[in-house]
């Protein structure tokens, strides 16, 4: 695309200089037609795929504005006849949405930041140092992505219900600590690089560091910069876009996670827990029985909640993707 454009510009420049020749003008026209065709094709493709991705969400969106009359009216399909904020108001009130939002944000931000730093560190260690046993460590990293946490759920639960650090805590206090319903289980898992799909993040960082030239660090070493200073001042800035990506992964997966949330934070108000609990049994004003599963209104409220869970992440991404463009330009790396 870019190449084509400058090709056209170059042709235009020479054409202006040497007088318009018929052949060149024809070539120019062909270039523009080509460019136009390509951009039309590109938009067609992207819009089509975007529709495929968004279709379920669009259904939820139109559904979330429907009033109760619309839900039982068979002629209402996509566009609500009596649009209402009722569903949003009910959901926000019933799930104490803003409290859940704050809690979820706190936990997601903490694990995102910790996992980002730890995985970058481990990835750097695996990419740049030739110590003995590196192969084994790397194999173990890949292995941990392969084994999903569902298969060792019970051990994990026991570990954090009766938490002990190599027998140190029970030696001092005479008993183990129960860490459930605090941020500690996630913090511990993040610090040791065993959060959700952390092996993947380590793998990404390792491959990324292997791909960038060593000269920068070597120059820093020659200038007398120490190992950790080089890591902090040189390596971290040039891997900015990768780190943002990892942060986005772990933040949004913690945000929408139901596995760890239901295990570690069953008593904490989290968005994902509220969504999984659903709206069965909700008593509406003027009703004598609570909502039942399978009723249109229950489903509508779940749809509304799904949208409310997803929306902040999309907003976050819209901001973060700017740094996915400028990452390398900050770093000042040339060639």
């Amino acid at each position: 695309m870019r190449v084509v454009r400058t090709g056209a510009a170059a042709v235009a420049a020479t054409a202006a200089k040497g007088g318009l020749m018929a052949g060149r003008a024809k070539y120019l026209k062909w270039m523009y037609a080509n460019r136009l065709l390509w951009s039309v094709l590109r938009y067609l493709l992207l819009i089509g795929l975007a529709f495929l991705i968004l279709y379920p969400l669009l259904v939820k969106l139109s559904n979330s504005f429907m009033s109760r009359q619309d839900l039982i009216d068979g002629t209402v399909r996509f566009i609500p006849r009596q649009a209402t904020w009722f569903n949003y108001e009910t959901v926000i009130e019933y799930t104490s949405f803003f409290q859940g939002l704050a809690n979820t944000f706190g936990i997601s931000f903490m694990s995102g930041a910790l996992q980002m730093l730890v995985c970058t560190m481990v990835g750097y260690g695996l990419a740049r140092f030739n110590f003995k046993g590196k192969g084994i460590v790397f194999t173990l990293v890949v292995l941990t992505i392969l084994i999903p946490p569902q298969t060792y759920m019970i051990s994990l639960y026991m570990k954090f219900s009766f938490f002990d650090l190599f027998g140190l805590i029970s030696a001092v206090t005479g008993g183990t600590v129960r860490l459930m319903d605090s941020v500690w289980p996630m913090a511990v898992l993040s610090i040791i690089g065993f959060g959700f799909k952390n092996g993947l993040y380590i793998l990404i960082m390792r491959q990324y560091f292997k791909g960038i030239p060593k000269e920068l660090e070597e120059a820093a070493y020659v200038d007398g910069s120490g190992l950790f200073r080089t890591f902090g001042r040189i390596i971290l800035p040039i891997s900015f876009s990768m780190m943002v990506t990892i942060f986005l992964f772990s933040f949004s997966w913690q945000w929408t996670d139901s596995f760890y949330s239901s295990m570690f934070f069953s008593q904490v108000k989290l968005l994902s827990n509220s969504l999984m609990t659903g709206f069965e049994g909700l008593m509406l004003e003027g009703a004598t029985v609570g909502l039942k599963n399978g009723q249109p209104l229950t489903a509508t409220l779940t749809n509304t909640m799904s949208l409310l869970v997803i929306a902040p992440l999309i907003l976050l991404y819209l901001f973060a993707q700017k740094s996915l463009v400028e990452g390398i330009e900050h770093s000042g790396i040339v060639g």
Partner: peptide
């Protein structure tokens, strides 16, 4: 929009 599948990858929705 292409980020949406990442969000949905945990399968919560």
């Amino acid at each position: 929009i292409f980020f949406v599948p990442v969000i949905l990858a945990t399968g919560i929705v």
